[in-house]
């Protein structure tokens, strides 16, 4: 089977008008308005297969939301093509819209003054969900997301997180085959973040739905996605396995030392760059191939109470990708 999401050289520009500050600036822009095309996504291509969960990472303003909006048919591409389930998204065919869902932050698909149940019933009718399916799915969602206490409260009285959970539930009631989740865990407490992750993973296993997920919480991505796409400044900078990303972008491992006596950082930096030094704990960066050798030299030379060898935390690996600095420089800065 071929990919169910295909993105082919997508570009999306936004039109924004420029304004200089001050009254004169306002006046000038009133008379002659200058428009500028801001490229948000530049030549991005990828494919996603059925059943995949893909993490979509990138710093603020990288173009993640824009890409998801094109894939869900909200935006027309400036150039390039998108195909999702064999449909062209922006044509917004009813069959297409019934097979996808998009969850965006606090976008209100819930009626503010009514209860979530009221809105769910409307969704059921709009998406032609049979009563049996509706009851089953709502039951599952209610249990996993602990919705019972909030189902019959007016939405405007719900807390941020409660509202987010209901948004998520409302977006899944029609059993979509593709989930576009734009920061679905934003505003949730740690327990609920885990519940949402479990739910998404479970949904993916049971239905074989494809999931595309953006999040600034690395834990979401680690828990859910094997494959990640990294976008920065509108360009795709990485597409592959999360572990490959770590291997490629984090050539160093972290040597964690627990020292027996205080030692000056200079003395440690002889072996490898010092990443962090606080009292009796220190962290050194050792290239993958030479970890063992460096470790044994340190053990011979320095009073070490305990030693551990770890991978770089994913946050840092990805964070470093965004900084677009050669890793070595970043290391030097950290050492200072």
């Amino acid at each position: 089977m071929s990919a169910i999401i295909q993105l082919d050289h997508l570009c999306k520009d936004y039109e924004v008008h420029q304004k200089e500050p001050g009254l004169m600036g306002s006046l000038r822009s009133f008379v002659r308005r200058k428009y500028q095309l801001v490229p948000a996504v530049k030549d991005v291509s990828f494919e996603i297969e059925q059943g995949e969960i893909v993490g979509f990472l990138g710093p603020n303003g990288a173009g993640k939301t824009t890409t998801l909006k094109v894939l869900s048919g909200l935006l027309y591409p400036t150039s390039g093509h998108a195909r999702v389930l064999g449909f062209t998204p922006h044509e917004r065919k009813a069959d297409f819209l019934k097979s996808i869902t998009m969850v965006m932050g606090q976008k209100q698909q819930l009626a503010w003054d009514m209860t979530p149940s009221d809105s769910f019933l409307v969704n059921q009718a709009i998406y032609d969900v049979s009563d049996a399916d509706f009851r089953r799915r709502l039951g599952e969602l209610t249990e996993m997301l602990e919705l019972q206490p909030v189902l019959n409260k007016p939405v405007r009285k719900l807390s941020l997180g409660e509202r987010m959970k209901c948004e998520l539930a409302g977006a899944l009631l029609h059993g979509p085959k593709i989930l576009f989740l734009d920061e679905p865990t934003i505003g949730l407490d740690v327990n609920m973040q885990q519940a949402v992750r479990r739910f998404v993973a479970d949904y993916n296993v049971r239905t074989g739905a494809a999931v595309m997920l953006t999040s600034h919480y690395m834990a979401d991505v680690e828990a859910l996605a094997e494959r990640v796409l990294v976008i920065d400044g509108g360009q795709l900078v990485f597409d592959g396995n999360l572990s490959a990303l770590v291997a490629e972008r984090a050539p160093n491992k972290v040597l964690k030392l627990q020292l027996a006596h205080p030692v000056s950082p200079e003395r440690l930096s002889v072996f490898a760059p010092v990443r962090m030094m606080e009292g009796l704990t220190a962290e050194l960066l050792a290239p993958r191939g030479k970890v063992a050798e460096i470790a044994s030299r340190i053990l011979n030379d320095v009073p070490v109470a305990d030693i551990a060898i770890e991978d770089m935390p994913i946050e840092e690996v990805v964070g470093r990708l965004f900084q677009r600095k050669p890793p070595i420089e970043a290391v030097r800065e950290a050492a200072k």
Binding site: K19, L23, S26, L27, S29, F30, R33
Partner: peptide
């Protein structure tokens, strides 16, 4: 007045 006019000019 100045501040209001500035906002108004935005929405021409």
């Amino acid at each position: 007045i100045r501040a209001t006019v500035q906002v108004q000019l935005e929405y021409r």
